[in-house]
């Protein structure tokens, strides 16, 4: 009954008049952690935008859980965790306020929380160990706590698809481990998690699948098969420094997921 899945077929996406992504096709099934790898401007965020319904594809189709995007939005199916740089941390809202925003889609016009909303917020905050910090203004948090706050919002939203944009940038070891543990738990619960990142090391740690993007989807499949030197060199084009780092990562990927004991910050980042 619960048909969790993403079906993207032959999707050209134009953004600001330019085609950002050619003929993207992608199928993901329940219980997957999928890494999205590519350079800046390769089309990672465009793909996210298409899944959230922000860019209307000229042709092709995109279905999530067999539903068109409009219904996906109404059912709060896709939860998005933004990059830290995208958030106005001086905004006068508390941690609790932010997590409650994850519940707005379930509320009436005035957005008055019911007990189910309150308990979902509390659970989300407790799962990332942020309940004690709920009354803090978001700018008063550390990098990891900021990330966990938005992660809690996604948890409170109870979406089936989780989109994470650079989730491991600038977080502490504790946050890093906590998020990986949570992602693995969510995968077991049948959710689909898509992680857009530059951090190739984090991909090999726990992603079962990888999508390589460079203006179109170059390769998609199990991490161990797709993460080859040849594929990565196509993904990163002529960028020599990116490629050499990538190559290093391929050579070191003797162990794949799940490997939460490896602290972040030692990974390859560009």
């Amino acid at each position: 009954m619960d048909a969790v899945g993403i079906d993207i077929e032959n999707l050209p996406v134009a953004y600001n008049g330019k085609v950002a992504l050619h003929h993207a096709s992608l199928h993901l099934t329940a219980g997957t952690i999928c890494g999205l790898v590519g350079m800046n401007g390769a089309g990672k965020s465009t793909l996210f935008k298409a899944m959230m319904g922000f860019v209307r594809p000229a042709s092709g189709r995109i279905l999530i859980n067999k539903l068109p995007i409009r219904s996906v939005q109404k059912q709060n199916l896709v939860a998005y965790v933004p990059q830290s740089e995208e958030v106005d941390w001086n905004f006068p809202v508390s941690v609790h306020d932010v997590v409650m925003m994850g519940r707005y889609g379930y509320m009436n016009l005035l957005r008055i929380p019911r007990s189910s909303d309150k308990s979902a917020v509390r659970q989300g905050l407790e799962r990332v160990e942020m309940w004690q910090m709920r009354d803090r203004q978001i700018g008063e948090l550390s990098g990891g706590q900021k990330k966990r706050t938005f992660f809690a919002r996604a948890l409170a939203q109870q979406g089936k698809i989780l989109l994470l944009d650079e989730p491991f940038a600038g977080v502490d070891v504790k946050t890093d481990r906590m998020m990986i543990d949570l992602l693995i738990t969510l995968r077991q619960a049948g959710q689909i998690i898509l992680i857009s990142t530059h951090d190739l090391a984090s991909i090999t740690r726990f992603c079962d699948q990888v999508v390589l993007i460079n203006r179109s989807i170059l390769a998609h499949g199990p991490t161990s098969e797709v993460f080859t030197e040849e594929n990565l060199s196509r993904t990163f084009g002529g960028s020599v420094s990116d490629f050499s780092s990538a190559k290093e990562c391929v050579l070191n990927k003797t162990q794949t997921f799940p490997h939460p004991s490896l602290p972040s910050g030692e990974g390859t980042r560009f």
């Binding site: 959230m52 319904g53 922000f54 409009r70 939005q73 109404k74 709060n76 896709v78 939860a79 998005y80 933004p82 995208e86 958030v87 106005d88 905004f91 809202v93 932010v98 925003m101 994850g102 707005y104 889609g105 016009l109 005035l110 957005r111 919002r153 939203q157």
Partner: peptide, 21 residues
């Protein structure tokens, strides 16, 4: 009436759109 929606719109319009607001 629109207090909370407008706050969300100012704070994080990406999230607002993604949940159908």
């Amino acid at each position: 009436i629109l207090r909370k929606d407008l706050i969300l719109f100012c704070f994080d319009s990406t999230h607002a759109r993604s949940i159908g607001i």
